[in-house]
Design a protein around this nucleic acid. Structure first.
Length: 479
RNA sequence: GGCCUGUUCGUCUAUCGGUUAGGACGUAAGAUUCUCAAUCUUGAAAGAGGGGUUCAAUUCCCCUACGGGCUACCA
């Protein structure tokens, strides 16, 4: 069996889309699973759509995702160059061969003439007008400098059948196919030509790409046949959708890998989630490391239907990864959200409290708002059904709490918690209600990253007592 | 419009003719907890519709409906 070689062939037209990332992932997983090689090829043949830094974004994403390529523009390899714009002469050479064998031809038609070919439903199919030009005519046009393209000469009858590892056999009538442009008038090849040449020359065994290419695959097979080349295995992938109707797209925003990182998601979690969108591992495991994905990956697990991207589930998965971070790792990534936290707050402790409570680190500002934003909270928060707490009991018990806590010098969680229990027993106010009251009086928030005593420790004695007194005064004034 | 393709809980999916249609996220209820979260338990929740084939169809075939893709000198 020949070596397995897969490739990821993005065009540098912007940030790395999450669907592209998944295509890269599957190609990578398949190569690694089979001791093959994973190649990066940059498809920059559309000179008009190139975006600055897009190539850098591709490298960066691949690096962060841990998908390292064995061959590529930066790493080299024996089948380079790996950038299509540097392979122009190669494409022209092969286009020449196709012309010689009548599988392709020069076309001098103007845009205006092409537009006259539009049918009633708004489509147009090239009528092979230039296929019938005689040799002298072609040579004189070229000599005169008339712009031209090179088109594929598709047979007018018969059918093409190709086999796809995901979708099975697909057969199309040749007459449905178009005489695609192979070489544009600027001398660059189209994707429709370059991908065939490169995949063959780079000895790609399995072509992973989005299913939007299914329609044009018959054209590619015709090209492989014209050259007498072996046809690679095709693995067309279903799309990732924003919702049932819409593909996940740049227009909707947040569809880029880097955007998700910005939102606090961990690269491993994103990769794990995306791997499971459209592929199932034949077991019920949800969490996979990259190595585990390599172990489990099978093309037979890829589904045919498109999948809706569910950020809620991504958040859940991310939370699993966050919990597994070491305390130091979590603290390091949490720190950048601590800009507004006063220096007297122990952020190490804060991180410890936060780690099990956030799905992504970007949840932190919402959860720590009570630290710098306390006054004028809604005192109806003291009324809580489940804990049987009311503003009235709060007003009555708060003076006792303040007096007791002021006596404590060892400001430690266990000590404070025991003190709370004692107050509860002595006062007859239920433990749950008492803790609720303390926590609200301390934070002014419904939800906090810890219980009453933990909030005391976090805020420190001075601030805690100060806040309890402030809350009491508000209760006494009924506001 | 034509061609290609898809359709199981809200979402991601399992089932390769015979299952109480399974799991996960989310959701509901309960347990636990020092609030919230985490954790645990339990529940609700699905085969687009219609024809066939078959002793038996979610599963195979056909039609319809609905989605998606392609129909560029974009990829």
């Amino acid at each position: 069996m020949n070596e397995i070689r897969t490739r990821f062939a993005p065009s540098p037209t912007g940030f790395m889309h999450i669907g592209n990332l998944r295509t890269a992932l599957y190609a990578y997983l398949f190569a690694k699973k089979n001791n093959g090689r994973f190649i990066l090829r940059i498809e920059d043949t559309d000179q008009e759509r190139l975006v600055d830094n897009a190539v850098a974004a591709i490298y960066n994403t691949l690096k962060l995702a841990g998908l390292s390529h064995d061959e590529g523009p930066d790493t080299g390899g024996e089948y380079g160059p790996y950038v299509q714009s540097e392979r122009k002469s190669i494409y022209n050479e092969y286009a020449g061969k196709l012309i010689d064998s009548k599988h392709a031809y020069h076309c001098f038609c103007t845009k205006e003439r092409l537009e006259t070919l539009v049918d009633s439903s708004g489509n147009r199919k090239y009528d092979k007008h230039c296929l019938y030009l005689d040799k002298e005519e072609i040579e004189s046009q070229i000599a005169a400098g008339t712009p031209y393209v090179i088109r594929q000469n598709v047979p007018e009858t018969g059918t093409v059948t190709f086999s796809d590892l995901v979708f099975g056999n697909i057969t199309v009538e040749n007459r449905e196919l178009h005489d695609n442009v192979l070489i544009k008038s600027d001398g660059f090849p189209t994707y429709n030509f370059a991908n065939v040449i490169d995949d063959h020359l780079m000895k790609i065994s399995h072509v992973f790409r989005g299913m939007e290419y299914i329609s044009s695959t018959p054209n590619y097979n015709l090209l492989y046949e014209a050259f007498g080349w072996e046809i690679p295995q095709y693995v067309h992938l279903p799309h990732i959708m924003k919702d049932r109707q819409h593909k996940l797209s740049k227009r909707h925003g947040d569809a880029n890998f880097e955007d998700f990182l910005e939102k606090g998601f961990l690269p491993d979690a994103i990769l794990n989630y995306v791997a499971l969108l459209g592929w199932n591992p034949k077991n019920e495991i949800e969490k996979f490391s990259l190595n585990e994905l390599i172990e489990s990956f099978e093309i037979s697990g890829i589904s045919k239907s498109s999948a809706v991207f569910d950020e809620v589930k991504l958040r859940w998965l991310n939370a699993q990864y966050v919990k597994e971070l070491s305390a130091q790792e979590f603290h390091l990534s949490a720190e950048k959200y601590y800009a507004d936290i006063p220096v007297e707050i122990n952020t190490i402790l804060l991180s410890r409290l936060l780690q099990t409570r956030v799905s992504t680190v970007s949840d932190i500002p919402d959860m720590t708002g009570f630290i710098s934003n306390f006054e004028n909270y809604d005192i109806s928060l003291f009324n809580h059904k489940d804990s049987k707490s009311t503003a009235e009991t709060a007003k009555n018990i708060l003076p006792v709490i303040i007096a007791e806590l002021e006596k404590i010098d060892c400001w430690d969680n266990d000590v404070l918690f025991n003190a709370c229990i004692r107050i509860s027993e002595q006062s007859g106010v239920k433990k749950k209600a008492l803790l609720w009251i303390i926590r609200v009086a301390l934070t002014g928030h419904l939800s906090t990253p810890g219980g009453a005593s933990e909030m005391c420790v976090l805020l420190g004695k001075n601030l805690s007592v100060k806040r309890l007194k402030y809350s009491l005064s508000r209760l006494e004034n009924g506001m």
